[in-house]
Design a protein around this nucleic acid. Structure first.
Lengths: 136, 136
DNA sequence: GTAGCTGCAAACTCTTTGCAACTCT
DNA sequence: AGAGTTGCAAAGAGTTTGCAGCTAC
């Protein structure tokens, strides 16, 4: 993958200070921040930034597929950079989000879509679970 | 499975006229109606019903697991009766929602969660695709 | 009788947008 | 220079809630 800024320029976006800040925040986030989270982190780097700009920028990045927008049944969106394809397991007790990949799953999904008469364009998979308690 | 009304009574819910109407609407819907949809259909049976009651009832039913709440990335919720476990393929060109089940997928998900150290409690899978065009 | 339910309207949360000023290219 | 971008504040959409009256049990 590579440089977010480069890919934005490629798409014809003007590289403003605010966008640079937001891209920096996204690129250095290891989690799945909400818009509010991105806004707070961005303000740490440039206190004049507005949340409207964060919303607008995230929408743009989503359209460009540079970012993925998640709705984990919380009533708001979370974002993450679209570095690599993976899925999420949400720990119901702690809210922790675990990422995973599974090749078998990928193949199976394409096959299911095909059997239904569809070309698979996109998909979402979320698992919700509780940590297995080891017995002593 | 079976009677929605019975299961509500079992849970200690009072069986009011409005609830009966909403349950009837849900039980006879073959699609995945939004709150607004449920409200409109319910008004056809009892014009005095309010949307606040629809929201409250659907939340209750969701807590009781009698109903499943979906968020198909549209900015609002859709509901369906929790009759049987299945997943959805959303046709990106028409918005049509196709339901499917796949045993292999179910096993795989349990296994993935287990490998990550989790007991699978719930999960969501949505495929987004385009209809395969047959060549003449 | 009374705990629970309802309609109404107001409030809330998340997100989008109109506008005038500003800024990359 | 000029199209695109920004901050602000207001508006929008979807959803929740306080309250007084009503109703199933």
């Amino acid at each position: 993958m590579g440089d977010l800024e480069a890919r934005c320029a490629e798409a014809g976006l003007k590289m403003t200070g605010q966008r640079r800040v937001i891209l920096k925040v996204l690129g250095s986030s290891e989690d799945h921040p909400s818009v509010e989270d991105v806004y707070e982190r961005a303000k740490g780097l440039d206190s004049s930034i507005s949340i409207a700009t964060v919303y607008r920028t995230l929408s743009l990045l989503d359209e460009l597929d540079l970012v993925i927008r998640h709705e984990f049944q919380e009533g708001y969106s979370r974002y993450e950079v679209n570095w690599d394809h993976h899925h999420h397991l949400i720990d119901l007790e702690t809210g922790k989000v675990v990422e995973f990949q599974n090749e078998e799953l990928e193949k199976l999904k394409v096959k299911i879509a095909k059997d239904l008469g569809y070309d698979l364009v996109d998909h979402r998979l979320e698992l919700y679970g509780k940590k297995i308690k080891k017995k002593k």
